[in-house]
Every structure is written in structure tokens, then in C-alpha cells.
């Protein structure tokens, strides 16, 4: 009977964590929609201007949810896959590819739009895809992808691409510099709704696919041979999960730049609270990561009104100390 009870209790705990995270998400989103540089009267009737502002803020919140949740899930996947708690979405080199694409489009080509969409995210996504292909090809040995190869290749390709980015930025005109720096530091401003919609579709599809692989991820996080003994086809699973994490990262970075820290800290935060079972960790991380980024973006907008602070600065400033506090508290209980 103990087994039955324990499994019911843990299932209930997972559901409870999801509901609490979702409630926090809704609260943070509500506050974040209402407050901002422009004041909106709650009691008086909404003007057209108010409606437009609310629409913009809502779009921004959806982007923050998608990007924050997506990066967190990508972090969960990579930490589990590589069995390395220091992994985060940017170690794969994908994000550096996106940065290079963005820099090329702005500084080198100076293009503004592409097929009716703003050009920067499209170029960034192309850069991410190119970086993915390079990393994948280099780390592949006889149809297998040894995880150490993948990690090292990702880090090194990322470093090389980043130095190309710095090279290009250092020779660019001032007018482009600001645009590029803002993008590199992470920015949730909406370029257009079509972009928001496509990023949401891509990221959410990938997160659902990741959730369907959570049992495989559980097994692989114990070690590849352990997973193989349990009946997991490890090479296929690794490739599948690597592609899912890359797609999420590429889409998120293309839309919002390199927002750091979310993909590293949220997975740990969630595991500290609810344990390691990926069947719960993946959905809860998506919601918690979304709520966290919405909150950080809200702070970034409000702290120096009407100016905005880059959201990546806030994610590290808020997330770091809170995480360390939680870590200390937890290790003292044990």
C-alpha cells in the first residue's frame, strides 16, 4: 500500500506545484499589464490609447512567458541530458549563432525588413540554425553524438562566433551599436505580432514534445548506459532532445536576444522545490520560468521610469541572490 500512497502523494504534489506556479503567473501578469510608464485609470472607462497600451503590454507579457518558459525548459533538458548542473541553453553555441546573424543583418547589411517581417529576428534565427548544423556535424562520430563532444563543440563554436560578433561590433557605427547592444542584452519589446505568434507556436510545440520525452529524460539523467539498460534508445533520444532544446533556444533568442540566467536558475529552483521527476519538472519550469521573466521585465520597466533597464541585468540581479538564499536554506534543513 505504501507504494500506491507514495505515488499518489507525489502526483498530487506535482499538480499542486503546477497550480501554485500558474496562480503566481496570473498574478504577476495582471500586475504587469496594469502598471507601466503610462498610467491607466482602473475605474474610468478605457480610452483608445489605453487599449493600445494594454495590447502592447499583453503582447510583451506573452513574449516574456514564451521566452522565459522556453529557456527554462531548454535548461532542464540540457542539464538532464548532459548530467551537468551548470548547463544552460547558451552553452550549445546556438545563441551565439543567433547573435552573429543579428549583427550581420544590422551592421553589415543594414537590412530593415524581410518578407514584411522585421529582419533582425529572421537573420538571428538563420544564424541559430547555421550554428546548430555546425555544432551537430562536428560533434557527430559514426552516427553517434557523444555528450562530451557536444558540450565542448558547443562551447567552442559559441566562443568563436562570439568573438566574431565582438569584432563586427567594435567596427560598427554608433547608430547601429545601440540597437545591437540592446538586442544582445535581451529585450522583450514586441517588433510585431506575427513574430510573437510564430515564436509562441514554435516554443510551445517544442515544450510539449519535450514533456512527451520526460520519462526518457529521467532515465538519461541517471547516465546513458543506465538508460540503455532500461530500454531507452539513447542515440535517438539524445538527438531528439538536443534538437528540441536547440529549436527553443534559437526561437527565444531570435525574438528577445540573449536573456541570461533564466535557463540556468529556474530548473534548479524547480528541482529544489519539487524534486527531479521530469514529468513534473518540465511543465512547472515552463510556468515558473515564464512568471519569473514577466516579473523581471516588469521591474526592468519600472525601476527607472520612463527609461528601461535591460531585462538580462534584472534576471541576474533578482534571481541570483534569491537562488543562493534558497540553496542555503535547503542545505541547512538537510
Amino acid at each position: 500500500m505504501q507504494v500506491r500512497e507514495a505515488s499518489q502523494i507525489s502526483r498530487k504534489r506535482g499538480r499542486k506545484a503546477f497550480i501554485i506556479a500558474a496562480a503566481i503567473l496570473v498574478m504577476v501578469a495582471a500586475v504587469s499589464v496594469y502598471f507601466g510608464a503610462a498610467k491607466i485609470g482602473l475605474l474610468s472607462a478605457l480610452t483608445d490609447m489605453d487599449k493600445r497600451i494594454l495590447g502592447l503590454r499583453a503582447g510583451r507579457i506573452l513574449l516574456a512567458l514564451t521566452v522565459g518558459g522556453g529557456l527554462s525548459v531548454a535548461g532542464v533538458i540540457l542539464q538532464g541530458l548532459m548530467r551537468n548542473p551548470l548547463c544552460e541553453p547558451y552553452v550549445l553555441g546556438i545563441s551565439s549563432g543567433a547573435a552573429l546573424g543579428a549583427v550581420i543583418s544590422t551592421i553589415v547589411l543594414g537590412v530593415q525588413s524581410f518578407l514584411g517581417l522585421s529582419a533582425l529576428p529572421i537573420w538571428a534565427f538563420l544564424g541559430a540554425v547555421a550554428a546548430f548544423i555546425v555544432v551537430y556535424r562536428i560533434s557527430e562520430v559514426n552516427g553517434r553524438i557523444p555528450i562530451q563532444n557536444l558540450l565542448l563543440t558547443g562551447v567552442i563554436v559559441g566562443a568563436v562566433l562570439s568573438s566574431v560578433v565582438i569584432f563586427l561590433v567594435s567596427f560598427s557605427d554608433k547608430e547601429y551599436l545601440h540597437t545591437v547592444m540592446w538586442w544582445l542584452l535581451g529585450n522583450l519589446q514586441i517588433f510585431d505580432m506575427k513574430l510573437l505568434l510564430s515564436v509562441m507556436v514554435i516554443v510551445i510545440t517544442a515544450v510539449v514534445l519535450a514533456a512527451l520525452n520526460s520519462r526518457e529524460l529521467n532515465a538519461i539523467s541517471l547516465g546513458e548506459e543506465e538508460a540503455a539498460h532500461l530500454g531507452v534508445d539513447i542515440e535517438k533520444t539524445k538527438k531528439r532532445l538536443f534538437i528540441i532544446a536547440s529549436v527553443i533556444t534559437g526561437a527565444a533568442v531570435s525574438a528577445a536576444g540573449m536573456i541570461g540566467f533564466v535557463g540556468l536558475i529556474v530548473p534548479h529552483f524547480v528541482r529544489l522545490l519539487i524534486g527531479a521527476n521530469h514529468r513534473a519538472v518540465i511543465p512547472v519550469s515552463f510556468i515558473a520560468g515564464g512568471a519569473f521573466l514577466i516579473f523581471c521585465d516588469f521591474i526592468a520597466r519600472m525601476v527607472m521610469v520612463p527609461a528601461e533597464v535591460p531585462v538580462g541585468v534584472i534576471t541576474a540581479l533578482c534571481g541570483g541572490p534569491f537562488f543562493l538564499y534558497l540553496l542555503r536554506k535547503r542545505s541547512r534543513i538537510r
Binding site: 507514495a6 505515488s7 520519462r215 532515465a219 541517471l222 548506459e225
Partner: peptide, 22 residues
């Protein structure tokens, strides 16, 4: 195996349940 390096906080039940994967 002789010793499994579990680095994530799985419960015993979750580990045993993994045996049902196939």
C-alpha cells in the same frame, strides 16, 4: 551497476518506477 551516480534529487519510488520504462 556497482554504484550509480545519481546527481538529481529523485525519490526511491521514482527510481524503481523507471524500471517500468519498457
Amino acid at each position: 551497476s556497482s554504484e550509480s551516480g545519481v546527481i538529481f534529487p529523485f525519490t526511491c519510488l521514482e527510481i524503481v518506477m523507471m524500471g517500468r520504462f519498457p
